[in-house]
Amino acid sequence: MKTPINIRKITHEEFMNLKHGDIVFIRLDHTYQGTVTRPAFYNYDADVPDWEVETTNGYCDEHSLYVYA
């Protein structure tokens, strides 16, 4: 999928308010579109515990998520 040019970094408030079915973009080495399958939760089991959401592309923290601008 080609990366949309009209995306921006998600804000903390938007991240905390994500819900099942919301569309997000995960930017790692490429940009991937994903759908939220589990809203924000504190992941104690992560290498570095932090708030994350579960998407169709795995678990993501807010630092790698983007939304439509």
Rank of each mutant, 00 (worst) to 15 (best):
P39E: 09
D50F: 04
M1S: 08
V53P: 07
H12D: 09
Y59P: 00
Y59H: 11
N43C: 12
D45T: 12
M16E: 08
Y42L: 06
Y32H: 11
G34N: 04
I5K: 07
N17T: 04
F15Q: 03
E52F: 02
I23V: 15
V48M: 07
F15T: 00
Y68E: 14
A46I: 02
M16Y: 05
Y66V: 01
D47C: 07
T35M: 06
H63L: 10
Y66W: 15
V53E: 06
I26F: 02
M16G: 06
I26D: 00
M1F: 04
P49R: 00
Y68F: 15
Y44G: 12
G34T: 04
R38A: 07
N6E: 02
A40P: 13
F41Q: 11
Y68H: 15
Y68V: 06
N57M: 12
N43W: 10
D45W: 10
Y66G: 02
F25P: 12
T11E: 04
E14A: 00
I26R: 04
T55M: 12
N57F: 09
M16H: 09
G34F: 05
T37M: 04
R8W: 00
R27I: 07
Q33W: 05
Y32P: 05
Q33N: 08
A69P: 05
D61I: 00
P39D: 09
E52L: 06
H20W: 09
V53S: 06
T31E: 05
T55N: 12
I7Q: 03
I5R: 05
K9A: 01
I5W: 03
M1P: 03
E14S: 01
N6Y: 01
M16W: 03
F25C: 06
G21K: 15
T37N: 04
I7H: 03
W51L: 11
Y68S: 11
S64N: 14
E52N: 09
K9R: 13
F25M: 06
I10Q: 00
T11K: 07
V36P: 00
D61S: 13
D47P: 11
R38T: 12
D50C: 13
E13W: 01
Y59A: 12
Y66Q: 04
A69S: 15
I5V: 10
A40Y: 06
H30N: 13
E14N: 02
C60M: 08
D45I: 03
F15M: 02
V48D: 14
R38D: 01
C60A: 13
L65S: 13
E62I: 02
W51S: 11
W51G: 08
R27Y: 09
V67P: 13
F25H: 11
Y66H: 10
I26N: 02
T11C: 03
T31F: 01
I23R: 03
V53A: 03
K19S: 14
M16C: 05
H63C: 08
I7M: 03
V53H: 07
P49V: 00
E54P: 07
N17V: 01
M1L: 04
M1R: 06
N6M: 00
V67L: 15
S64R: 13
Y42H: 12
N57R: 05
F25I: 01
E62W: 03
L28A: 13
T55V: 11
A40D: 12
T37Q: 04
A46C: 08
T56Y: 09
Y32K: 11
G21E: 09
N17G: 02
K19M: 08
W51I: 08
K19V: 14
N43F: 06
T55H: 12
L65R: 13
E13H: 04
L65M: 14
L28K: 12
